[in-house]
């Protein structure tokens, strides 16, 4: 085996991949949220739909999104492999467990991840697949010389169904729990643990997690109520 594959297959190399893909997903979530907040405008979807058009037509974004798909797959597959190995490493379990040594999130990253993956499948089917392969109404907004797909109405329609709103909000709580541990953990995996900066990273992680979870969850609730 070459030194490089050796490194990538070592437990520390695997964690490095988890960490880097995780951080990439963290950046993605921030961008995604900023875009989605445009759903809150009462402008008949103009801001959101033209933004969605830009995100599916810009070459740079297209290339980045290939990186994103690869990153999610790598993160999910690697995560499940690590999880399976970790369960096997214990062997016979304990009769009595004192759980509080480790946070709920940190003990359940695997389960939380799998729930996120299931949500992601639904989410991609509802919007991404429809945007890329489905048919949609076209709208020509005033001042644009091209028509754009009316994704806004699709979103609005789906979140008029309370079941989807509830699934969405629960999924965001799960993402929040995953990140509650994941954000700071990613830095530790990279070897970044420092008396001065680690408390800052942990604080930033909590703020990020709360803002992102709430930010996403508000959108379908708002759309449902409107």
């Amino acid at each position: 085996m070459s030194w490089f594959t050796n490194f990538l297959l070592s437990s520390i190399g695997q964690k490095l991949i988890m960490s880097l893909t995780g951080l990439f997903l963290i950046v993605f979530l921030a961008v995604h949220l900023t875009g989605n907040l445009q759903l809150l405008y009462n402008d008949n979807g103009e801001a959101f739909n033209t933004y969605a058009y830009f995100m599916t037509s810009n070459l740079f974004i297209k290339i980045t999104s290939i990186g994103l798909y690869t990153g999610i797959l790598l993160h999910a597959i690697q995560g499940i492999l690590i999880w399976r190995r970790n369960v096997a490493a214990r062997g016979t379990g304990y009769k009595v467990k004192k759980a509080s040594d480790a946070s709920f999130s940190s003990r359940n990253m695997g389960w939380l991840g799998v729930i996120i993956a299931i949500f992601l499948a639904l989410h991609l089917y509802q919007f991404w697949a429809k945007m890329h392969f489905g048919t949609m109404e076209m709208i020509n907004y005033h001042g644009y010389d091209y028509a754009v797909k009316d994704l806004y109405s699709v979103v609005d329609h789906i979140y008029s169904n309370p079941v989807y709103v509830i699934i969405y909000v629960i999924s965001m709580i799960v993402v929040g729990l995953h990140l509650w541990h994941g954000f700071q953990s990613a830095f530790q995996s990279l070897g970044l643990n420092h008396k001065k900066y680690t408390p800052l990273i942990k604080g930033l992680g909590m703020i990020y997690t709360i803002v992102v979870t709430l930010g996403f969850a508000i959108i379908p609730i708002y759309m449902y109520l409107n």
Binding site: S10, S11, I12, I82, N86, A88, S103, S185
Partner: peptide, 22 residues
């Protein structure tokens, strides 16, 4: 040492912190 640790069949670190607590 890391190579040997991996070969012994230990699990991988999730940074839970249970180790330092105990």
């Amino acid at each position: 040492m890391v190579n040997q640790m991996d070969q012994e069949g230990f699990g991988k670190c999730s940074n839970t912190g249970a180790c330092e607590a105990e």
